[in-house]
């Protein structure tokens, strides 16, 4: 066994542009191994884009990402991914077990079909999310929370060291939310690193130990106790945030998404021009 590197994910000077608009601007980020990190920020802040760029699904205009010191393409087997639930067609003719087995396709490689071993691993992953009895179920018959758990089970089947999850709490019931939190804490306990795009500011201190505040630029990143404060939130959400001066922050009482203030995107948009010129 080699010595474990302590940095699981390292993002350097990452800039991502969509047409002329910079979606991410010069983001630097370090995520230590074994941490549970939330990425928060307003709509259009580039949270999903950051995740997708780290996973190599989007090409950055500048900068690079390292997973345990190497590019993602060399470290795929170490990474598990939970896309947004709404990104797929849940009326697709397939079963729960089948979807979970997709988590093993990477290890299977080309052409080889999943067999009995893969089935067993899929059922084990389903058991961990409390969905074992749904294994044979057609996926269109699942509730939103159950769909989310199927996606989590698929990522668990990947047996990764780092998990990236895109809004796993979006539109799930309280039972599933508690189940996911338990799962995240279980993952951390077994030494895994988890990065979660998150919406609900209220639950950040309770669920996570690190937070990255993102609004096109990385506003702040670090342990929740150090960076999850009023000033940083104001800088991230542009001041239109109602604070209750009580322990723990609340966005707008409902923990919902906040509008991006008009002034904010102007700066990075102009910056995007530079980004395309290779800076």
């Amino acid at each position: 066994m080699q010595v474990k590197p302590t940095t699981a994910v390292e993002v350097n000077d990452l800039t991502v542009a969509y047409r002329d608009q910079a979606v991410l601007w010069d983001v630097d980020l370090t995520i230590p191994e074994g941490s549970l990190t939330a990425i928060v920020g307003p709509n259009g802040a580039g949270k999903s884009t950051l995740l997708k760029t780290i996973l190599g699904l989007l090409k950055p205009a500048a900068g690079h990402v390292l997973i345990y010191g190497k590019p993602y393409t060399q470290q795929r087997r170490l990474v598990g991914y939970v896309p947004q639930r709404g990104s797929v067609d849940w009326d697709f003719p397939t079963t729960v077990e089948d979807v979970v087995m997709m988590g093993l396709y990477g290890r299977l490689g080309w052409i080889r079909r999943p067999g009995r071993r893969e089935r067993k691993l899929a059922l084990k992953a389903l058991e961990k999310v409390g969905m074992l009895e749904y294994a044979g179920r057609q996926i269109s018959q699942l509730s939103g929370g159950q769909q989310q758990r199927v996606f989590l089970a698929r990522a668990l089947a990947q047996d990764a060291r780092i998990y990236f999850m895109d809004e796993p709490f979006q539109g799930v019931d309280a039972t599933t939310e508690r189940a996911i939190v338990a799962l995240l804490h279980g993952l951390r306990q077994s030494g895994k690193t988890v990065v979660v795009v998150h919406h609900d500011l209220q639950t950040v201190p309770e669920y996570f130990d690190r937070v990255t505040l993102l609004n096109v630029q990385c506003i702040a990143s670090g342990p929740v106790a150090e960076v999850f404060n009023e000033e940083n939130l104001r800088r991230t959400y542009g001041g239109r945030i109602a604070f209750f001066h009580q322990p723990g922050f609340s966005a707008n009482g409902k923990g919902g998404e906040l509008p991006v203030p008009a002034g904010v995107p102007a700066v990075p948009a102009a910056a995007g021009e530079n980004g395309r010129n290779g800076r």
Binding site: K124, E127, K128, V129, G130, R149, T175, T176, R178, A179, V181, A182, L183, H185, G186, L187, Q189, S190
Partner: peptide, 8 residues
């Protein structure tokens, strides 16, 4: 589910 089904 919340009882930490992850222990396994």
């Amino acid at each position: 589910a919340q009882g930490g089904g992850y222990e396994h």
